[in-house]
């Protein structure tokens, strides 16, 4: 009886093996995507930003208009939707210009035409930084470089914006 037992796989052992095997597979199936997700940001190169539709070309005026749009943001480990703001207008040459509202001094949000003394300028409320309409910093105010400009693409009369770059 005992000899027979040694040579054959008992029901209990068989079940143990099977369950461990199946369990292992199930565990691996669960863990694999998690590991993938956790390591993903490390593997992915910082690709070209996507372009997002913001407004129609014929709505763009010479007066800067504030437009918001949403982008998919990868912030280290987290993926989220982030809101972006752009001041969009046609400059003196009739070209479309889309400016980032982030002050190049220390990152506050600038506003257009809020100051009575300088109605045609961007103004930063934190340290009175100012920029002319084209986003060029006014000498003597804290910012040291112009407002960043969004990459743009016009397709079929629709304006798409990408990432904001320094000039």
């Amino acid at each position: 009886m005992s000899e027979k037992k040694n040579n054959q796989v008992s029901r209990r052992t068989f079940l143990n093996y099977t369950l461990t095997g199946v369990g292992g597979f199930m565990g691996a199936a669960m863990v694999a995507p998690m590991v993938g997700m956790a390591v993903d940001p490390l593997l992915q190169a910082d690709g070209e930003g996507d372009f997002v539709y913001v407004m129609d070309e014929d709505e763009i005026t010479e007066e800067p208009q504030r437009k918001t749009f949403t982008i998919d943001q990868e912030d280290g480990w987290y993926e989220s939707q982030a809101e972006r703001v752009a001041w969009i207008f046609r400059d003196g040459n009739g070209d479309i210009l889309a400016l980032s509202p982030i002050c190049t001094h220390l990152g506050c949000i600038v506003d257009w035409g809020v100051q009575d003394d300088h109605p045609d300028q961007f103004y930063c409320p934190c340290h009175d930084g100012r920029y002319d309409k084209d986003g060029v910093n006014i000498p003597g105010t804290p910012p040291t470089e112009p407002l960043h400009v969004y990459e743009q693409r016009v397709d079929d009369g629709r304006l798409y914006l990408g990432r904001a770059n320094p000039r």
Binding site: L106, C108, I109, P125, C126, H127
Partner: peptide, 8 residues
């Protein structure tokens, strides 16, 4: 904090 990052 986002709006007034440079002073707050």
């Amino acid at each position: 904090e986002k709006q007034l990052k440079g002073r707050v």
